[in-house]
């Protein structure tokens, strides 16, 4: 078991090392990066917006209920929704969802390419497949996912507003006052650190699973499942480590 774990970690590192090689043709890599940006970024916009609006709304309703009848001022709801979105829900929940959507897609895409001998065909043409198939996806994810996380934070705050202000749980002024209260810019830095680290995880782990898939459809399904499970575990683990490092 230990040997297997070390073997896979070593293989993962070697694959990444191979991926960071000089491209054979910059324009082909650029074209592929643009395609991946559209797939990962634009393709995930609706699902990210949808989960974010509900995350914000649920947080606002829940805290409104918790704070009701206490001495804590009601405008704290805006403050809590904002910080919850920036620190935790926008980067972590969004990336957990993206690990499911983008991660499983990447593992399946690479796995199918392996099974249908597309990777062998490219390799035989002289293409560095690790670089061509990984680098554009990684760059696209590291550029687009922090943007999605930013959108998610904004939409979550709007979701909190829509859940409380129109229902008279809170006045618009109070919600806005909460949003402006106790703002710490380093929380935004933390959000972007998390977004970049999680993007790296949710791209490279599924790619590793797909790139080395062997066998038939059952193995491909397993690789896709493993990609999501391992990405989620690593995202949560690194979430904890980043929280300890940046808040300590």
């Amino acid at each position: 078991m230990n040997f297997n774990l070390l073997y896979h970690i070593g293989r993962y590192i070697l694959l990444l090392r191979q991926a960071f090689s000089k491209p054979e043709n910059w324009s082909m890599y650029w074209k592929e990066t643009m395609r991946q940006m559209e797939d990962i970024g634009i393709g995930s916009l609706v699902i990210v917006a949808l989960i974010s609006i509900f995350m914000g709304a649920v947080a606002a309703v829940q805290f409104s209920y918790q704070l009701d009848g206490t001495l804590v001022p009601q405008y704290y709801i805006g403050y809590i929704v904002r910080d919850l979105a920036i620190i935790e829900s926008a980067p972590t929940i969004t990336c957990l969802v993206l690990a499911g959507k983008v991660g499983s897609n990447l593992a399946a895409e690479l796995g199918t390419m392996r099974q249908k001998e597309h990777i062998d065909a490219m390799e035989l043409m002289g293409v560095n497949t690790a670089a061509y198939l990984i680098l554009p996806k990684l760059i696209a994810a590291i550029v687009m996912i922090p943007l999605l996380v930013t959108i998610s934070a904004y939409v979550a705050i709007i979701g909190g507003y829509l859940a409380t202000v129109p229902t008279d749980a809170l006045s618009s002024d109070d919600y806005e006052r909460g949003l402006r209260a106790f703002f710490q810019p380093r929380n935004v830095t933390m959000m972007y650190v998390k977004a970049v680290v999680f993007s790296f995880i949710l791209t490279t782990v599924p790619i590793f699973q797909g790139y080395y898939v062997k066998g038939g459809n059952i193995e491909l399904g397993k690789a896709s499942t493993n990609a999501v499970v391992f990405s989620n575990i690593l995202i949560l683990l690194s979430d904890y480590l980043i929280a300890v490092l940046l808040t300590g």
Binding site: N25, K116, E117, H118, D120, L124, M125
Partner: peptide, 27 residues
């Protein structure tokens, strides 16, 4: 070296012209 694979190994997301041009685009 050129190779014809058993299942042809054509890239599904590319048109015929892009498939055939791929090695030229790269090299």
């Amino acid at each position: 070296v050129g190779m014809l694979f058993q299942g042809s190994a054509l890239f599904d997301s590319m048109k015929v012209i892009e498939n055939v041009r791929f090695p030229l685009d790269m090299f």
